[in-house]
Design a protein around this nucleic acid. Structure first.
Lengths: 186, 186
DNA sequence: TTTCTCTTTTGACCTAAATCAAAAAATAGC
DNA sequence: GCTATTTTTTGATTTAGGTCAAAAGAGAAA
């Protein structure tokens, strides 16, 4: 639940929470839907109440490379694009039927001005995400293919067996063949 | 200047700025000083007014691996450790004689509560840092050694020729020998 | 069940970059 | 200046993981 998630981060009052939630829209999204394409400006911040998603980008050779996975009960967004309102480098895709809450940049900006606590929430989320990305960077930069897969299992235990091997392999910076061989030897 | 930097991010008033700056301490630091060791809790946020720094960690085999470079006119911190007050995974080291402004976690927390704008500043910084780390991640994950060095030249043009080849090589996830050969063929 | 498509596995071979080792160059200390 | 120490370069060899190609397996539609 999005309310539980928000309260866990910052102690909003009941009224504040209602006001904030009024700025979000709830939607049901079918799997394989692309929320944002490369080049579009990501104008919405999404909260995944159910389902999973990923961001990926398309290399010149046409291959998709997964950049991040988004689990349920987490925000999903093309960060740079949304916050600096510049064209997204990534695609955002829903991988399993999802229930999402979305808020536009304009509405979020209103909330950020209105509620000091909302700024705090955003800061906390950004720092949390930063820590996660740094963690992945270390895994990618210094570890063998096998160790990177172990990182994946720890970081996304729920997702590791729900998305295709190819998506995971590209997320981990290795080929499908290599990941297949790693799994074989588990 | 730290004041210029702050104002560029958020329009603080003169009084606010003075109050905020009163919470910082100015220090001159000699090169090669270690600000934070692995395992310590990073209790201060540093602003580099002059000089450069890096974060690195020590692998089990005793080798240092540079994790990030910090240029003058930027904040320098072991992010996770500082914000979640947990033991740092990294060392923070000053590489060239520096002038820094530092603020403790306690004092920063006071400012974050006192000034809505200060929360905003922190959010913006976190998002900016996030974008940079994502950028490096992409360079590391998908590019050849040569391309990674080109990324370094773009991201840290000032630093690329001021720090040792070994520091840069480990930052880019390659050996010194490889970087030396790349430079030779430039 | 059969067909079509998409995903995963397996095998053979190749290459970018690592490792190991040692020489050359640059810096720092005296 | 002249050593001592650290950093960088060069060469020879190895290897993890990539590439290419094809077979096997798994869904989905009908």
């Amino acid at each position: 639940m999005i309310t539980d998630y928000l309260i866990k981060q910052v102690p909003f009052t009941h009224d504040e929470l209602n006001d904030i939630l009024d700025h979000f829209e709830k939607e049901h999204i079918q799997k394989n839907r692309i929320l944002i394409k490369e080049g579009q400006i990501c104008n919405k911040l999404y909260f995944l109440e159910a389902g999973i998603g990923r961001s990926f980008y398309l290399k010149k050779n046409g291959k998709e490379v997964t950049q991040w996975f988004f689990e349920d009960d987490n925000f999903m967004v093309s960060v740079d694009s949304f916050f600096s309102q510049t064209p997204s480098v990534y695609y955002l895709e829903i991988l399993e039927n999802a229930i999402i809450y979305s808020i536009t940049k304009e509405k979020l900006d209103l909330l950020l001005v209105k509620y000091h606590k909302m700024e705090k929430l955003s800061r906390l989320l950004a720092i949390e995400m930063l820590a996660k990305v740094v963690h992945k960077l270390n895994a990618i930069q210094f570890q063998t293919a096998k160790q990177r897969y172990d990182y994946m299992l720890k970081e996304f235990p729920d997702i590791a067996y729900r998305v295709s091997l190819g998506h995971i392999a590209s997320y981990l910076g290795m080929t499908q063949e290599t990941l297949s061989r790693i799994r074989k030897n588990e």
